[in-house]
Amino acid sequence: MSVLSGQRAWLLQRITAIYAGLYVFLAVVLLLARPPADHAAWLATITHPVIWTATAAFAVLMLLHAWIGLRDVILDYVRPFGVRLGALAIVAILFLLLGLWALWILIEAALR
């Protein structure tokens, strides 16, 4: 598989979609079955090591999934090379910041 493999992006998008689908399904089931009574209960749930790890992975994989999708849209529609490169850079920086923000929220919750 080459560095610029189209297959890798295609495969990653599908794997991340499966993970995101499973996570959302299990999260909904869990929240419906055992709804947290208050903020303390919610914090206890989200900082449970398994749930915390699964949520952190969800944040990262969702951003990866969205990056591949938006990259595809930009490759499809944005033709001038410079504008394309600029659009890709803006999306990459934005997603990186979003990922760091999501992880910071999770770390902050775990440290409480």
């Binding site: 598989m1 080459s2 493999s5 189209g6 297959q7 992006a9 595809d72 490759l75």
Partner: peptide, 14 residues
């Protein structure tokens, strides 16, 4: 297969 494995030749198909 190797020639088709880039971002454009095959994988622009949605």
């Amino acid at each position: 297969l190797e020639r088709l494995d880039d971002a454009y030749r095959l994988y622009r198909c949605h």
